[in-house]
Computed example of a mutant assay.
Amino acid sequence: MAMTTSLADLSVLLVEPSHMQANLVKRMLEHQGVIEVKVVDCAAAALAALTENAAVGRVVISSLYLPDMAGTDLVAAMRGDPDLETIPFILVSSETRPQVLEPVRQSGACSIVAKPFNEQQLSRALYAAADYLNPPEDMDIAEVESLRVLLVDDSVASRNHLRRLLEELGIERITEAVDGKQAVNLLQETMVDLVITDYNMPEMDGRELTEYIRTQSWQNNVPILMVTSEQNMGRLAAVERAGVSAICDKPFEAGSIRKLISESLTR
C-alpha cells in the first residue's frame, strides 16, 4: 500500500447527490488541506471513477441515500472488488437506525460521520483514513511477524478488513473462525498469541467465547480484543466482566487496533 503522509496527500472522491451539500463538504475538505476532491452524484459514477483512476491516497466519502443505490451497497460493491477493497470509506449520514448502519459498520468503514457535522468531526474521519493508509513504523518487526492471531467474526467483510490491517502490520500467521464455536475448536489444537473477536455472532457470541477462554481453555491468559458494533452498555459491561482485554468500536480507527495489538505484545 502506498504511503500518504498528510491530508494534502489524500485524493477524495465525494459521492453526494445534493449540489448544496457537496459544495459544503468540499469547502470543509479544502479548509482541512485536501487539494484533490472529485465530486460525483451517484454510486455508478463513483465506481466508474474509482476503476478508472487508482489514485494514491484515494478516500471515498459518501452519503447514505444515493439515487441509484444506498451507500451501504456502494461500500459492499467496493469490498467485493479486489481493486477497490482497500480504499477507506467514510459514510456521512443523518441516519441513526442500527439496522441501517450495521452493514457499513461490518464492511470495514473507517468512520460514520453523523449529520449535521462540523469540520473537526470531518477532520477526525479524514485522519482515520490517512492512518489506515499509513503502515506503522514503530513496531518490532521480528516480534510482530511471530505473532499468531485468531480472528473471529461472522462477517466476511469485517474479517477481510481486519486481516488487511494485520497484514499491513506484518502479521502473517492469521487463523480465521466464523463464530465462537469454531474458535473453541481451533483453540483446542492451535496455540495463539492474540484473539480478535466480534461480539454478535451465531452459535456462540463474543461474551461466551471470552468466558470459555478464561474459564476452560488451556490458553486462558491469551489477550482478547473485542471489535464490535454493539451499543448496549449492559452487554458490553458483561463482556468486560467476562475478561476481555480491550473493546474497540466498529467502525474503528486503524491506529486504535494497532495500538491495542502493540500493547498486547508487551504484556
Rank of each mutant, 00 (worst) to 15 (best):
E189P: 00
G170Y: 06
L236D: 10
S111T: 06
C248A: 14
A157E: 11
N200L: 13
S123Q: 12
A45F: 01
V56E: 13
N53C: 09
V222I: 14
E203H: 02
R148S: 14
L66V: 02
E208T: 07
G255K: 12
V149K: 03
L13V: 10
E95W: 03
D249E: 13
P116K: 09
G234V: 07
N134F: 07
D179S: 01
W218S: 13
P88A: 10
Y132T: 04
G206L: 04
T51P: 08
L150T: 08
R27H: 12
D140A: 14
S245E: 07
L64S: 01
D83A: 15
G234S: 09
M69P: 00
F117R: 10
T96M: 11
D131H: 07
L194G: 05
I112R: 03
S11F: 05
L74W: 07
R148Q: 15
N53H: 14
D193P: 04
Q216N: 10
S63P: 00
L225V: 14
N232I: 04
V222T: 13
S11K: 07
S262L: 11
A142E: 15
P251F: 06
V60N: 07
D179N: 08
S256G: 09
S256C: 04
Y199N: 12
N185E: 15
D73Y: 01
A183G: 02
E167Y: 00
M233W: 05
D41M: 08
V25G: 09
G180R: 01
V192H: 09
R97I: 03
L236N: 12
A142S: 14
T96P: 00
V12P: 11
V184G: 05
A46G: 05
I174V: 12
S146P: 00
T4L: 03
E208N: 07
T210L: 05
T72V: 01
L147W: 01
D73S: 08
L194W: 04
P202Y: 03
G206H: 03
S229T: 09
R27I: 07
V34Q: 08
D198P: 11
A130L: 15
E137D: 15
E263I: 08
Q120H: 07
E137N: 11
V222E: 10
I90G: 08
D68W: 01
M201Q: 06
R148K: 15
R27L: 15
Q231K: 13
F89M: 10
Y199D: 05
D249F: 04
E189D: 09
T5C: 02
P251Y: 06
L187Y: 02
L236K: 12
A125C: 06
R241E: 12
S6K: 11
A142L: 15
E240D: 01
L265Q: 14
